[in-house]
Structure formats: structure tokens, C-alpha cells
Amino acid sequence: MRLFTFQRAASVDEAIASGAGAAFLAGGTNLVDLMKIEVLNPERVLDVSRLDLAKIELREGALQIGALASNTAVAEHGDVRRAAPGLSEALLSGASPQLRNAATVGGNLLQRTRCAYYRDLGTRCNKREAGSGCDALDGWTRMHAILGVSDKCIAAHPSDMCVALYALDATVRVRGPAGEREIPIGELHLLPGDHPEREFSLQPAELITGVRVPIDALAARSRYVKVRDRQSYAFALASCAAAVQVEGGAVQAARFALGGVGTKPWRVPEAERSMQGRPATRETFARAAEIALRGATPRRDNAFKVELAKRTAVRGLMLSAGALS
């Protein structure tokens, strides 16, 4: 680990005032890991872990989740389990109990890719070092993305929580030198395009203070399905957060997002609209999955993800629709 100066922020205002050029540190499960392998080398680390941002409450028709709420606290919270079960399931499907106890919602929103080339200083990576090239393109691509990729980067987005938050239409609350603003979660993560090193739409010194998850009948039906190489404690090969509302056998409303396959959690409004008014059957869901995977560009080792993602989507939608036990 490279040397850095360490400061504790006593308040959100103080964190923002001295945040420019510093890395905000909360649970450390991602940042400290990446600092140890010298992928991230902040010169200044600002400890925000003691700020008063850990509350979770159901208020004004939404779950208001503080940025410092731990993954465990969110996943186990009664209101979350009742009002947005898919979010709880997504969190519990990620990492290990030890990591979930330390990891926070704010950190998870900014979780860095697990692309093996990003983590290996001996290889080229445009995300780690802008313009240096990408060794993943011709490398071992089994874990890489098939959607939202560019010829500069094919790194998959790693977070399970974010996939659920996409399907739940969450909003991210941030505060910075210019004040407070809300970012629709789909706009927080940037596609790699020509600049994979730019990952988030946050401005310098902007601090995530919380997440707002609108709660409605659809959110209460949300579920999360994750397919991986082993039963537990592995990143997704494909995952799906789905919420389907069925009335009289027909789909009234539906949303879903895919994980493990995109350079960011993947949501396709057209795929969701295609289910509207149709019978809540495997055929309807398969058609939506087909649309969601349009434009997928697999590489040598991850062609299987196209079919896997479709089936995972169907399974998630069926589960939420109550068509599976």
C-alpha cells in the first residue's frame, strides 16, 4: 500500500469541504482492498465512517437508506424485507457475512469491477490507467460483460445491490460543494465508451448521503435471482432483479435489471414495455429477455452468458410473477 494521509471527517459539511482530491473511506472492503494491491492510490483518505448517515426508514412512500447503512443492516431490516424483498435478496446473495457487516450502501454504489486485468498491475487496463490499452479484450473473458462494452473496456459491473436498485428505480442522494442533488441510479454509472476511467457521474468532493427507493405494489413483489460458479460467495455470471405485477393473469407492470452481464446494471425499457398487458407466461417473459439481450457482443469465453442471462431473466420474472414457487 502506498502512503497516504488520513483524516477523520466530523460532519458531512467537513467531509465535503475537504473532500476534493481525497478518497472517502467507509467500510473499506473495496477501497482498502484496492489500495493494498495498489490499483487505487489516494494521497489523502478521508474517513467518513462515523458520520450520521446510517439510518434506514420508510418515509414519504419510499425507503430512505443512509449511505453508511451496512449491507447487513439493509438486508435484515424489516421494512426492506417487506417493501423491497428483491433488495434484501440481492444484498444477501453478495459477498460473505463478514464483508456485508463492513460494506456500506454508499461504497457498494461505487464498487469497482472485479475484472482480473483491472486488478493486475502487470497488465494493461484503460480503467486503471487511461489510454494504456486493455488486455482483457484478447484475454480470458469468461467473467466479462457482453452488454454496454466498448473496444476500450469489457469489465463487468460487480454489485448485486445496484442491480436491485436499478429494477426498483432508486435515486441516489449526493451532497457536494454546490449543494444537494438527486441522481437517478441509472445515471450514476457511466458506460465505458472511450473513457473507461470515468466511472461515475459524481463531481469532485460530492459525497453520497443516501438512497431513496420508491415503495409501491411492484417493489413489494421484487425478487433477485443470481447464477454463479458456486452456491455462495461468488460474483454473478448472470443475475436478475425483477418485479412483476399481475392482474387477472396479465402483466400490469414489470421492471427488471440484469447483473453480471453489463458494464453497468442493465435495464431495457423496451423489454419491460413488451410485457405490458400480456399473459404472465414464460413466453411473455422470454420475449422480454430476448429484447433485453439485443446487441449483446460476447467474446471468446463468455458467449454462454447470452443464453444464461435470458434464462436468468425469465426465472426472475416468473418468480416475481408468482409463476414459480
Binding site: 488520513f6 473511506l25 473499506g28 472492503t29 482498502v32 482492498d33 493494498k36 494491491i37 474517513d47 465512517s49 447487513t72 460473505s96 457475512p97 463478514q98 464483508l99 457487516n101 463492513a102
Partner: peptide
Amino acid sequence: CDMGQCGACTVIVDGQRVNSCLKLVAQ
């Protein structure tokens, strides 16, 4: 592993199990 993957460093901090290899003492 020294990178939060194996759990051999698990200790209990303020009532919760965590990977001690990823916790800065400064915090």
C-alpha cells in the same frame, strides 16, 4: 489471502464479525 476473501483473519469488532485484513486501525 490478506484481501478479504478467505476469512482466516475474522475477528469480532463491536459485536460484528469482520475481515481484520481490510480494517484500517485508524478507523
